[in-house]
């Protein structure tokens, strides 16, 4: 008998009902956003005018599908570009951090570990403004001292990348460190005893062991970057990533089902990537440790 289970039948029924209601609550807005991408109408609302794929593929007015909408596609490209660069940077630095905190001892280690974690609890808007302010301070200083304009430090993609990098590195560091902690150090010692050099051990023993975590960290960082809004909003210049483009469209133009199409596209894409990252990190651990 499972003692954690509930014995009273009525209570069990209520409990089951609650769970069903909860998962319906989780699914409702996602379904609403997704389903209306296929409605043959100018508005994402009832009545249902029949099934269409126009909001994805049509190239004629008034129903321009998302794959023919130039601004949306440019936003998508920008998001991909930012996401790939920022995730690669965050994985590189995250790997260094993982080795630093798992393998080395140095003064103030625990205090520095707190610093490593802190970006996770700073609201994204504040990370955004702090990077904006600091970059402008440097740019103004350079302008006054040297008379040069470092436009790279003004709002734009470089700042978006730096701003996202500042908190994504925490995530990648933690993911990679968790995997490194499970590594059996005697494997490295064996390889060293057999005459392999340190770099060779790293390349043939340690990094292959870390590979699933590196991939998972990259995927997670990419997803978070792709979906980031708050930090990006403060730092964005003329090239807007997809989330910003979509927000602008929602607020200024009002919504047409093309936004539902983008939503569905994002849901499917992020769902696939998220599942992939969970599977990669799982290695038969019980659920809960899978994150």
């Amino acid at each position: 008998m499972n003692v954690a289970a509930l014995q009273s039948r009525a209570f069990r029924l209520i409990y089951k009902g609650y769970l069903v209601a909860f998962f319906a609550y989780l699914a409702a807005p996602l379904l609403a956003a997704g389903v209306f991408a296929f409605n043959d109408s100018q508005f994402p609302a009832l009545p249902w005018n029949g099934f269409t794929l126009d909001w994805f593929f049509s190239d004629t007015e008034p129903k321009i599908g998302m794959f023919h909408d130039r601004r949306l596609m440019r936003g998508l490209q920008t998001s991909l570009y930012v996401g790939i660069i920022v995730s690669a940077m965050a994985v590189a630095v995250g790997t260094c951090n993982a080795f630093l905190f798992e393998r080395r001892d140095f003064p103030f280690k625990s205090a520095l570990f707190v610093l490593l974690v802190i970006p996770l609890v700073i609201p994204g808007v504040i990370i955004g403004i702090s990077v904006l302010v600091f970059a402008s301070m440097i740019a103004n200083g350079v302008e006054q001292a040297l008379g040069q304009d470092w436009s790279i430090l003004r709002p734009g993609l470089t700042l978006v990348i730096l701003g996202q990098f500042s908190f994504l590195t925490t995530i990648t560091s933690l993911v990679i460190a968790a995997r490194l902690r499970k590594f059996d150090i005697s494997l490295e010692e064996a390889a060293l005893n057999l005459g392999a050099s340190r770099p060779r051990v790293l390349a043939t023993v340690t990094l292959p062991f870390l590979a699933p975590a590196l991939t998972a960290a990259f995927l997670v960082a990419f997803l978070v970057s792709f979906e980031n809004f708050n930090t990006t909003l403060m730092l964005v210049g003329s090239d807007a990533p997809l989330t910003i483009t979509m927000y602008d469209r929602m607020v200024k133009v009002g919504s047409t089902p093309v936004l539902n199409a983008v939503s569905l596209f994002l849901m499917v894409g992020s769902g696939i990537l998220a599942l992939l990252s969970v599977v990669l990190q799982r290695d038969k651990a019980p659920p809960g440790s899978a994150t």
Partner: peptide, 8 residues
């Protein structure tokens, strides 16, 4: 749904 963007 945890991974679906806030915006969506």
């Amino acid at each position: 749904p945890l991974w679906v963007s806030d915006l969506v």
